[in-house]
Write a protein that binds this DNA or RNA. Sequence first.
DNA 1: AGCAGATTTCGCAAAATTGCGAAAGTTGGA
DNA 2: TCCAACTTTCGCAATTTTGCGAAATCTGCT
Lengths: 111, 111
Amino acid sequence: MKKGTRRTPTTDAVEIIRRRYYEGRPERIVGLAEAEANDTVARKICKLRKRAGLTQQQLAKRVGTTTSVISRLEDADYEGHSLAMLRRIASALNKRVELRFVSAGRTTKLA
Amino acid sequence: MKKGTRRTPTTDAVEIIRRRYYEGRPERIVGLAEAEANDTVARKICKLRKRAGLTQQQLAKRVGTTTSVISRLEDADYEGHSLAMLRRIASALNKRVELRFVSAGRTTKLA
DNA sequence: AGCAGATTTCGCAAAATTGCGAAAGTTGGA
DNA sequence: TCCAACTTTCGCAATTTTGCGAAATCTGCT
């Protein structure tokens, strides 16, 4: 990569698109980020809990909180998940949170 | 799985261990969760940013925040990452956050 | 219908994270 | 060494998430 005078020149397609769409418009990024299905995290927690054969109350006890909190976390509209809480839940189920930044659009395949 | 009278009986090793160690001791779980290398998330962000050839300031602009915030997120000792912020960062780099709850200890293999 | 267990919703206080600017500290090159 | 760019640290306000209990809903079963 050459050190650009103004800015690193790019031949990267996604980078070009990004510049067109988001540069100088942080709101868009924030919006995008929010919009992107958190939904999934909520469902994951829910499925995980059910798969473990636990009620919200039982999970709450293990996590060290209450049912209302668990319920909130499992709510598809909830957006406020913190890594800390996700980890607590994972630990309570003998799991571990794995985080990955993958190229937009692409879905990671597991072996 | 049979429906247990009191509680679902288990032959699952990790589940047995979990019961011995954590049941009724939510503090332990919280502790474990905190201890578990957040470190990694910080490094991921840092590497990701550098790989994209950006300075903290440039990333900050894209994300819609300041350098001090980025610096904090990249600090290995920082534990307060929120999914919302991680997503904003991912979006700013044309990526997406993928979250997974994997069995403790096991490392996921990619295809 | 009536009951017991499970989940959701409401409200508010406490705690934690983000926002932001300024100052201090680092790093690399001229 | 000096300079410019980059990163880290500090403090505090603003916003957000968690904690928690009570009441309202929902579900499945008899």
